[in-house]
Simulated scan of single mutants.
Amino acid sequence: MKLRRRLAATGVLLRDLMAPRGCAGCDMPDEILCKACTQAFSHTVELDMPGTLAGYGAAAAPYHGVVRQAILQWKDHGDQECDMPLAYVMVRLVDTLRLHGLVQYAQCQQLLVVPAPSSPSSVHARGRRHLEPLAMCVSDHLQRHGVTSQYARALTMRRQRRKAVQTASAASRIDRLAGAIRFDPAAISALEPRKTMAVIIDDIITTGATMRQCVQTLDDAGIPVLTTLALARTPRD
C-alpha cells in the first residue's frame, strides 16, 4: 500500500512538471477545483433515510456535469489534491444542515464520523481509502464547534461489489449488499456504544441501498445513526 502511494505521488509530481494541472471539474489551468466548480457543490439534495434519527440524508449536489467529472477525477483517477476541496464541500454541507444543533438535540456524548466502506478490491485498485480524509475533516470541524467527535472506520465490506454508480434497482442493490457490510467493534473498542451515535459519509448516492445497509448495520450494533452525508446524488427519473 505504501509503495502504491509513493508511486502515485511520483506520478502526480511528474505530471505537474510536464504539464500544469487543470481543475478536476472543468480543466481550468492551474486550479485544483476552481471557484465555479466548488460552487456547483452547493445545491443540497435531501432524501429520505429511514432508520436515521433525523429521518433524512443529504448530498451536496446532483451527480452530473462538473460535479460528476470532479468526483470521478478524484475517486477513480487518483487526484488526491482534491481531498481538501471536497472535504471543504462536506464540511459546508454539515453547516448547511446545522448538524451541530441536531447533535445537541439528541444529547449525544460521542459522535462517530464513519465512512461508507469500499470493497477490498476497490481499496487495492485506488491504493487508498478515498473517503478517509473527508470523514476526518468533518470530525475535526465538529470538534472545533464543541461536538465530541471521532473518525472511526467502523464498517467493512467483506466481498466485492460492482461499481457504485450504475443502473440498478434499489431491491437488487439491497440484495447484493445483504451480509456484505459488517460492523468492526475494534474501531470503537474504547467507547461506550450506548452513549455513541454516528454520521455516515459517502461519495455518491445512487439508490441509497448502500447507505441504508450501513445505517442498519450500525443500528444492529447498538449505534444509532444521526444522518447520512454524501458529495452527490444521482438524478432521479
Rank of each mutant, 00 (worst) to 15 (best):
187 A>Y: 04
113 V>D: 00
4 R>M: 05
68 R>F: 09
74 W>R: 03
164 A>K: 07
231 L>R: 13
1 M>I: 09
44 T>H: 08
4 R>W: 02
23 C>P: 12
221 A>R: 03
207 T>I: 05
12 V>H: 14
11 G>R: 14
74 W>Y: 15
73 Q>S: 15
178 A>E: 14
42 S>V: 02
116 A>W: 04
221 A>E: 07
213 Q>N: 13
153 R>K: 10
36 A>R: 12
38 T>A: 15
207 T>V: 06
115 P>W: 04
201 I>P: 02
119 S>Q: 05
134 L>A: 07
106 A>L: 15
187 A>I: 08
59 A>N: 04
12 V>Y: 11
174 I>Q: 14
127 G>P: 08
209 A>Y: 02
35 K>E: 14
114 V>E: 01
164 A>I: 06
216 Q>K: 11
221 A>N: 04
217 T>G: 07
108 C>W: 03
195 K>Y: 13
208 G>S: 06
111 L>V: 15
69 Q>C: 09
3 L>W: 09
46 E>F: 10
161 R>I: 13
210 T>D: 05
78 G>E: 05
22 G>E: 06
92 R>L: 01
105 Y>C: 09
164 A>L: 10
47 L>F: 15
70 A>V: 09
206 T>S: 08
24 A>R: 12
144 R>H: 08
210 T>W: 02
112 L>K: 04
97 L>P: 02
92 R>D: 05
111 L>F: 01
153 R>V: 10
129 R>M: 07
209 A>M: 07
135 A>Q: 04
88 Y>C: 08
118 S>C: 12
176 R>L: 14
223 I>Q: 07
44 T>A: 10
160 Q>L: 07
107 Q>C: 12
163 K>I: 13
107 Q>A: 14
129 R>G: 06
115 P>M: 05
167 T>V: 13
188 I>E: 02
93 L>W: 04
192 E>T: 13
86 L>V: 06
127 G>L: 01
155 L>V: 11
99 L>K: 00
86 L>S: 03
19 A>I: 11
186 A>Y: 00
227 T>F: 08
147 V>R: 02
18 M>Q: 06
205 I>A: 11
219 D>M: 01
77 H>L: 11
150 Q>D: 04
163 K>A: 13
162 R>I: 06
48 D>Y: 02
215 V>L: 04
186 A>D: 14
133 P>E: 01
111 L>R: 00
192 E>L: 09
118 S>I: 10
142 L>F: 05
80 Q>E: 08
199 V>I: 15
157 M>W: 04
104 Q>H: 12
214 C>M: 01
99 L>C: 05
171 A>V: 12
141 H>M: 03
165 V>A: 12
14 L>T: 11
119 S>H: 03
74 W>N: 00
127 G>E: 03
55 G>I: 01
149 S>Q: 04
200 I>M: 03
75 K>Q: 03
77 H>I: 05
127 G>S: 07
213 Q>H: 10
68 R>V: 01
209 A>Q: 06
93 L>V: 09
129 R>A: 10
81 E>M: 09
94 V>C: 10
168 A>E: 15
226 L>Y: 04
8 A>R: 15
97 L>H: 08
49 M>S: 11
21 R>E: 08
32 I>V: 15
145 H>A: 01
157 M>V: 09
207 T>L: 08
19 A>W: 13
155 L>E: 07
237 D>I: 01
12 V>W: 11
36 A>Q: 11
